[in-house]
Design a protein around this nucleic acid. Structure first.
Length: 364
DNA sequence: TCTGGGGTCCTAGGACCC
DNA sequence: TCTGGGGTCCTAGGACCC
């Protein structure tokens, strides 16, 4: 294939309020309702968080990752004020991944190099279109196709690299199309708060704010040597990102997972070994099911994570002398690891457990 | 407001080998 | 008797993403 020019043009496609939109598509009577996909709110006493809120629910102030109990309270106040009541839905991952496959299969008909990064997001290499004008045309076709064929809306960002494409996709949600050309990229980033840069989370943002930096433009005062000193390897990437530089390629191959794990938060904190053991054995079975489905034959490391009632989280791991691939082996190691936590040495104040998790690594 | 579940990548110290 | 580095593996924890 010959390109009209050698400009690199990258797209990022992001399905809007994805879990909630799929629920709406499959249950037409929910159309337009404030939908909250997440754990069981249990009348305001539930311990989980919100996975996705539909745009109608966002008008009540509900957001992803918010405690489900808070979402419940916001919805109650809205209902008392005469607004429609919220619908709480438990996630149905199976139908979400089916919908995701439909959408991205459709996109692949137009774009050869597609890198799916999660169930609702993908990067596209649009360099073959040759120009931002042509890339925009293609993006419009994609959005129309997804809407007409799958009944879902997508927001698309287009830019000179993954960083700009991703941020652009998020600026006009839902159902938006945002183009940021190579020339405009730095100006586009400059006024943004630092946390808009993927990779800058609350901790990094706080450390930068301490130095007096709030926006991308501010933080460009940081010399790369200082960025390296403050943030290690990531410091240099950070220095580049602030300047809209990002050389990461769009990689089409689906890579095998590096680890497989399961977590569980108890409805009430517990010290009961029987209950804990039951959860662990169930997790071991689920992990081995995924392990077999993915075609793995052995694991070498087992990690057990515990979260105590005070939310402190610790992990213990062990590496087998030889790779193993049986459920029995995983169960035995899980028991060995959990017993070490229940000993007074590891848990001197005998705190109850809020969460237990199991993970296998070094898969073959 | 009281904090899910599934992951990835990085760091740092210690052990061990050459 | 004292003192090297380099490389690799293991372990634990932290930050981040969706």
């Amino acid at each position: 294939m010959r390109y009209a020019s050698s400009v690199r043009i990258i797209g990022h496609i992001d399905l809007d309020a994805f879990f909630a939109s799929v629920e709406e598509r499959e249950k037409p009577y929910l159309k337009g309702a404030p939908i909250i996909v997440g754990s069981d709110p249990q009348g305001g006493r539930g311990r989980g968080v919100v996975s996705t809120a539909s745009y109608a629910a966002r008008r009540y102030g509900v957001r992803s990752a918010m405690p489900i109990s808070k979402a419940w309270k916001l919805c109650e106040s809205a209902r008392c004020a005469g607004y429609p009541a919220c619908v709480f839905v438990t996630p149905g991952m199976h139908s979400y991944s089916k919908a995701s496959q439909e959408v991205f299969a459709l996109v692949r008909k137009h774009v050869r190099v597609l890198e799916q990064v999660s169930v609702d997001e993908a990067y596209l290499d649009l360099s073959f279109t040759g120009s931002y004008t042509q890339a925009r045309r293609l993006a419009e076709v994609l959005r129309k196709d997804i809407r007409d064929t799958c009944g879902l809306t997508a927001s698309i960002g287009i830019g000179p690299n993954k960083l700009i494409a991703k941020i652009a996709a998020g600026t006009q949600k839902p159902n938006g199309l945002t183009i940021v050309t190579t020339r405009a990229a730095e100006r586009f980033l400059d006024p943004l708060p630092l946390q808009e840069i993927p990779g800058i989370g609350p901790k990094t943002a706080a450390r930068l704010k301490q130095k007096g930096f709030k926006t991308v433009h501010d933080a460009k005062a940081l010399a790369w040597q200082d960025a390296r000193r403050m943030f290690g390897k990531w410091g240099f990437s950070l220095y580049e990102r602030l300047r809209a530089i990002d050389d990461r390629a769009v990689v089409a191959e689906h890579e095998a997972p590096l680890s497989i794990g399961r977590h569980h938060t108890f409805e009430t904190d517990t010290r009961n070994l029987q209950d804990i053991q039951e959860v662990l054995m169930d997790q071991a079975r689920r992990i081995m099911r995924t392990f077999a489905r993915e075609g793995f034959t052995s694991f070498k490391t087992v990690v057990l994570t515990v979260r105590f009632s005070d939310f402190t989280t610790v992990s213990r791991s062990l590496t087998l002398s030889e790779p193993r691939g049986t459920l029995r082996e995983l169960e035995l190691k899980a028991i060995k690891l959990i017993l070490s936590f229940l000993e007074s040495r590891e848990n001197p104040r005998n705190k109850a457990l809020r969460l237990v998790g199991l993970r296998i690594e070094k898969l073959e």
